[in-house]
């Protein structure tokens, strides 16, 4: 194996831009009063956790080469179901969370079926599912904005495990699950197959990967994690709102932004769940820096556009060089420090 090149150059910066982003945001926080208080850190990470789950789901799907637009609605429906089951049917919390997550698995299976069997493009299939889920949500809780308003477990998720640690239990669970998923994606056969299917579907199929099965697993993982996150968020904030995220900055948009900032390849096959997570933490702190929603939108948009432009132009340059003179491409790779 070649020695890993740890030169501090443009490529290194680019590969770790999520960390760079986090550092800059935290640095900017020094100029802000009351920014690094335990209360602030606790509330910022807690309130930002829902989007971390969505980012997790979105990233898994994007690695598999698909887009999952349902993430936001799955999590809202799961939150509604979880709180609704507890307050209406009186089921214990664990069962509620389990049922909500099963709902997520079901949605994931349907998504997977639509994409792999009916061969509908994932963007369109999940778009249609979005409408269906919205309808289901309104049918489940007619004329009531928040059917669940249950604060019995709210304290538990808000509190922290170790006294003095400024993180809520909810955020810690989020982090834990994301680390587990990361290990799964990197070190298990299925996880690596997801990368393979996303990178090149045909090659993966020729190599004997059951591509349909793997794609479905990616969708199920995505929906299930969003449902679990949504259910936990419902308990964390104590209430679920049917129109969650329909106005203002859509959580889906933030998840997409963070996925791109985290360096996940838009075409699939490359990316890391952890990087998305890091950039989502950074986005959460960024939102605490700017109190005005307008500025939040603008700054997030500028960063997203900068990342897309960067990726696109890099790709464009590569396509200019690639194939015309193979050696030139090697030279190019060497120059950017990847040779």
């Amino acid at each position: 194996m070649e020695r890993k090149n740890l030169k501090f150059n443009g490529s290194f910066l680019n590969n770790n831009r999520a960390y760079l982003f986090l550092i800059i945001v935290l640095f900017a926080g020094i100029f802000r009063n009351n920014f690094f208080t335990a209360f602030n850190i606790n509330s910022v990470t807690g309130n930002g956790s829902l989007v971390m789950w969505l980012g997790l789901g979105f990233t898994i799907c994007l690695i598999a080469g698909h887009m999952d637009l349902t993430v936001q609605y799955v999590s809202t429906l799961a939150a509604l179901m979880c709180l609704g089951l507890h307050s209406r049917q009186g089921l214990p919390w664990l069962v509620c969370i389990l049922i909500a997550t099963c709902m997520g698995v079901l949605v994931g299976l349907i998504n997977g079926f639509l994409v792999t069997k009916l061969k509908i493009h994932s963007f369109i299939a999940t778009l249609g599912m979005q409408f269906v889920l919205r309808g289901v949500m309104y049918m489940y809780s007619p004329e009531e904005q928040s059917i669940g308003r249950d604060y019995s477990a709210n304290e538990a998720l808000n509190g922290s495990l170790i006294p003095g640690l400024p993180f809520s239990l909810y955020f810690l669970i989020t982090t834990l699950v994301i680390v587990i998923v990361m290990v799964f994606m990197r070190n298990t056969r299925t996880g690596r197959n997801i990368y393979m299917v996303g990178g090149n579907l045909e090659t993966a199929w020729l190599a004997g990967v059951k591509s349909n099965q793997v794609t479905t697993i990616a969708f199920v993982l995505s929906s299930a994690s969003c449902a679990l996150g949504g259910a936990l968020n419902g308990i964390y904030s104590g209430a679920a709102n049917i129109s969650m995220g329909e106005k203002g900055i859509a959580p889906l948009m933030i998840a997409l932004t963070a996925t791109i900032i985290g360096g996940t390849d838009i075409a699939g096959g490359h990316g890391s769940v952890l990087n998305t997570y890091i950039s989502l933490v950074a986005v959460a702190f960024l939102r605490a820096l700017f109190k005005k929603t307008e500025m939040q939108v603008l700054v997030i948009a500028i960063i997203l556009i900068a990342c897309i432009c960067y990726e696109t132009i890099a790709q464009y340059r590569k396509s200019k060089v690639l194939g015309t003179r193979p050696n030139l491409h090697l030279e190019y790779l060497k120059e950017i420090g990847r040779g």
Partner: peptide, 18 residues
Amino acid sequence: DPNWDQSTQDGYIDQAIN
């Protein structure tokens, strides 16, 4: 301005208390 979003408003309330 939380833009009609309940969870964003929750976040702003934390920010305001802070």
